[in-house]
Simulated scan of single mutants.
Amino acid sequence: MRVPMILALVTVLAGCADSHRWSPQQNGSARITTSDRIFITTPADGEYGDNVYSGSGRNTAKIIYNAASAKSHLVRIGGLAENYQDAINQAQGAEQDILIFPTILHWEDRATEWSMISDKVEIKVEVIQVQTGAVISSGIIKGSSGLATLGGDHPQDLLPQPIAEFVSSLF
């Protein structure tokens, strides 16, 4: 009787666990210092099929801002960046040292508690020295919610931990 009960408990707890990972694509040798002015562009809102998740771009920029602000006081969020050149132009116009350019690649907010389909998120993040155009780091953060969410979870809830870890690695 104990073994089936333990297996059921382990299964339920495993269903609650979110998963996320950072997959680096490029890591330069340069690091961000606390005296660098950091500019975070706002990505376009995430989409899945015909659904556009209004505010997801701003949420993503804010999560990155919160992580960077824990390391530096010289952090600001810029406007919507349609593309890489637009992001560079915004950062140069604001006389910033470092550009963090996030792009939402996948954003899927599901009613997991009844559909048993996980929320999913995938964000590409590029960190660039504005003056030289050198890439300090770039990679992709992927996250997926557990199945036993008990409601209220969203893709942005999968981002704070991996983004905080990524930002910490830049300093």
Rank of each mutant, 00 (worst) to 15 (best):
L147R: 08
S138L: 01
I64P: 03
Q96P: 05
V12F: 13
A70P: 00
D36M: 04
G139N: 03
W114D: 12
A70S: 08
E113W: 12
D157N: 15
A91Y: 02
G151W: 05
G28F: 02
A94P: 02
F39V: 06
T41V: 12
L74K: 11
K142Y: 11
T33C: 13
A164C: 09
L150F: 15
T103F: 09
G93E: 03
W107S: 01
I100R: 00
D109I: 05
D36N: 10
D36K: 07
M5S: 12
K62A: 14
H106E: 13
S56H: 04
D109N: 14
S54E: 07
S115V: 07
A68P: 01
E108V: 07
G28I: 02
D36W: 04
A61N: 10
S69R: 07
T41P: 04
A111W: 11
G139L: 08
L80Q: 07
A81V: 07
V125W: 00
P162E: 05
I123R: 04
R31E: 08
L7Q: 12
E165H: 14
N59P: 06
I40M: 05
Q26G: 07
M116A: 13
W107R: 00
V3Q: 13
A81M: 05
V130T: 01
A44P: 06
I100C: 06
A30R: 08
I77E: 08
I140M: 06
N59H: 10
A68T: 01
C16G: 11
L105P: 00
E126I: 02
R76Q: 10
N89R: 13
H20I: 07
L170S: 00
H73G: 13
S168M: 07
P162R: 06
E165T: 14
T34L: 06
L13G: 09
E108L: 10
S137G: 05
S118G: 02
G152E: 04
H73A: 14
S54Q: 09
N59Y: 09
Y53V: 03
E95Y: 15
G143Y: 05
Q96W: 00
I98C: 03
I6M: 14
A81Y: 01
V121A: 06
L99V: 09
W114E: 10
L13A: 08
K142W: 10
D18K: 11
S115R: 12
A68V: 00
S23F: 14
N66G: 11
E108Q: 14
S169F: 02
